[in-house]
């Protein structure tokens, strides 16, 4: 399955509510450009779920209404997968968080090979609180993520790893 098809499947699953335990991500853009940088997938939403009747009332009274976003980027070549380019994008996301008054954001990279070990280390040790970084390897179906709360939530709440193995099963 191509990286583009995986990004499409990601979008479908998130719009179906895959992230609902942590946020209601309900608006999705493809090839979205912010301040000159283009993301293959940009999904935004809020932490307060909509729901119906009782769940709506509970969400309204209990949950804070933070704006959050999910950025997805395909790593097309080796130049995209350097330490420098990853750090630049993370810095860019920090600026976008301030600009769009987001509470937090996920940044997920889609690659079709393992990243160099220094980049993997960078991702795993990334500790900016308001950004969760993940790297999905389309070939192996493995995912690495930053060790902060948002990075872990990619596995715990968005179940990105399970989604990858499901895509792999459907593909074979």
């Amino acid at each position: 399955m191509s990286l583009y098809a995986i990004v499409d499947e990601f979008e479908r699953q998130i719009l179906k509510g895959r992230a609902r335990f942590i946020a209601d991500l309900n608006e999705s853009f493809k090839d979205y450009t912010i301040n000159g940088s283009t993301f293959d997938l940009y999904i935004r939403g809020q932490t307060r779920a909509k729901g119906f009747a009782l769940s709506k009332f509970l969400a309204w009274t209990v949950l804070p209404n933070y704006r959050v976003a999910f950025f997805g980027k395909i790593l097309r070549n080796a130049a995209d997968s350097t330490r420098k380019s990853i750090l630049e994008l993370a810095e860019f996301i920090r600026a976008a968080i301030r600009q769009q008054e987001l509470r937090w954001a996920w940044l997920v990279f889609f690659a079709d090979q393992d990243l160099p070990s220094n980049v993997q280390n960078l991702v795993e040790k990334f500790d900016v609180q308001e950004i969760g970084i993940g790297v999905v390897n389309a070939k192996s179906g493995m995912m690495i993520h930053s060790n902060n709360l948002l990075g872990k939530s990619l596995k715990r709440y968005l179940h990105v790893d399970r989604l990858m193995s499901r895509i792999g099963r459907n593909d074979s």
């Binding site: 979008e11 608006e27 999705s28 853009f29």
Partner: peptide, 16 residues
């Protein structure tokens, strides 16, 4: 100028 997909409260998809 721009287009997105929007899932409304009942889960129905709209092209925005």
């Amino acid at each position: 100028r721009n287009v997105s997909l929007f899932a409304d409260s009942s889960g129905q998809l709209n092209v925005r």
